[in-house]
Amino acid sequence: MRSLLYLYDPLCGWCYAATSGIARLRAAGVVVSLRPTGLFSDPGRVMTPEFADYAWKNDQRIAAMTGQTFTKAYHRQVLQAPGTAFDSTNAILALTAVAIDSPDGEADALRAVQEARYVAGRDITDIATLGTILTEAGYPGAAAAFDARAATLLSANAARLAAGQALMREVGGSGVPTLVMVDGASRRLLDSDALYGPSDGLLARFAATLALA
């Protein structure tokens, strides 16, 4: 059975812009499994005025190219908050908790986390904030597991990150978002640019390889 693996990082603006495309693929019946890579995870970095300016300019470029929303609340409350962490470690752990507790919910939980940052202007590097976001999104079990940080969750998270990074190396990916088609034992890198286009174009582009036509 053919399916897609989606390599992502919660702090990647391009991954946020790709969220609607992933949702359209799933709605069309494509099996899409998420794999974090930890691109912006530990040790991360701290927000500075210079980095904030760079990030905002990049976000505006993404918005212009894809139509995705990056609000003034995000600009003011996240980017213009010097000392705020730019580190996806906690967000990835929270999403791993969802993947374990509700295997089909990770994509929706990722969208909730992304919108909390880029639309509502909430700090998704903060542990308490992430727990609240998971609960609000309908994953209280995952929120409890994330808060408890059991050794089993930490081990599963480390394994997911290692697998995502290994897959990126295997297919020759250069960053996130990355789409990989899985067909039996075969894995093949796909062009992720179609994720940013209209729904019809996205599905048509993947019709041949995903047997949607």
Rank of each mutant, 00 (worst) to 15 (best):
Y54F: 11
T71W: 04
A162F: 12
T66E: 12
D123H: 09
G67C: 07
R45H: 12
T152G: 02
A18T: 08
A151V: 14
A137H: 02
Y74N: 03
P198V: 04
R169F: 11
A159S: 14
C15F: 08
W14E: 01
A211I: 11
L189P: 06
A55D: 06
I22Q: 00
V32Q: 04
L189S: 03
D9H: 09
V46Q: 15
A150F: 08
S3A: 14
P43I: 13
G175M: 07
L153W: 03
M47V: 10
A63S: 14
L39I: 09
D59Y: 08
A17D: 11
C12P: 06
Y196C: 03
I133A: 02
G67V: 06
P36Y: 01
A145T: 10
A27H: 12
A213E: 14
G175D: 09
P177R: 02
I124K: 01
T152K: 14
R117Q: 15
F51R: 10
T178S: 11
Q165D: 14
Q165P: 07
S155D: 15
G197F: 08
A97F: 03
Q114A: 08
M168P: 03
A162I: 06
V30E: 10
G13N: 10
G83L: 06
D191P: 10
A208M: 12
I62C: 07
L93R: 11
A151I: 13
A142K: 01
S192I: 02
A63P: 12
C15H: 05
T71G: 08
Y74I: 04
T71L: 05
S33M: 11
I62A: 11
S20D: 15
G21F: 02
G164W: 00
